[in-house]
Design a protein around this nucleic acid. Structure first.
Lengths: 89, 89
DNA sequence: TAGGTATTTAGTTATTTACTTAAAAATTAA
DNA sequence: TTAATTTTTAAGTAAATAACTAAATACCTA
């Protein structure tokens, strides 16, 4: 579970996708416009992000909108807190 | 920089090494005892963790002690906070 | 229905990664 | 110095990853 998350985060293209989604929800096509990369490659990256539950997709007509799933980011924070300091925020 | 960190964290063996170091500092040999894996493999994993500055090493005689570098974990928390909620703790 | 757009799936290839064993380097002690 | 111990480096290999193109799927509109 956390393995899927860190594997997903280990690729710079996928982290940049997350950065884009921080601003606003985007379709697969809009996301791909930000990269010098084929649409299928971006689609695969989105699949990995979705598998890690870092993003959620929603189909609207012929478009698929992607958005962040913030709960997993909380999991990452909790994971890192165990190393940084013994509890406390 | 953050790329090295997430790449380092993407492997379960390396995350388990970090878990072990959460308890106490350990030598390379002590770490390797916790795995069904050759010492050179563990040494390579330690090199990756060190490259990401997630751990620090200190030579004491013929032993090399490894310990956590907590500052990078703070960086991870800061990174994730930007997705979770706009600031605030 | 037919054609167009958006997205994903399938199949292929080059690169990277994680492991192995063997050898080297560095330290300790007889 | 020689031998033993700890750790890293080097070289090789199998599996995973990330990219591509081509084809399939799904939806919309004329």
């Amino acid at each position: 579970m956390m393995n899927d998350v860190f594997k997903a985060l280990s690729d710079p293209t996928r982290r940049k996708i997350l950065d884009l989604l921080k601003e606003k929800d985007l379709t697969a096509g809009e996301i791909s416009e930000h990269f010098n990369m084929s649409k299928p490659s971006i689609s695969q990256h989105l699949k990995v992000l979705k598998g890690a539950q870092l993003v959620v997709d929603e189909k609207k007509g012929q478009y698929v909108f992607y958005s962040l799933n913030t709960t997993v980011f909380q999991d990452i924070i909790n994971w890192a807190f165990e190393f940084y300091g013994k509890g406390g925020c």
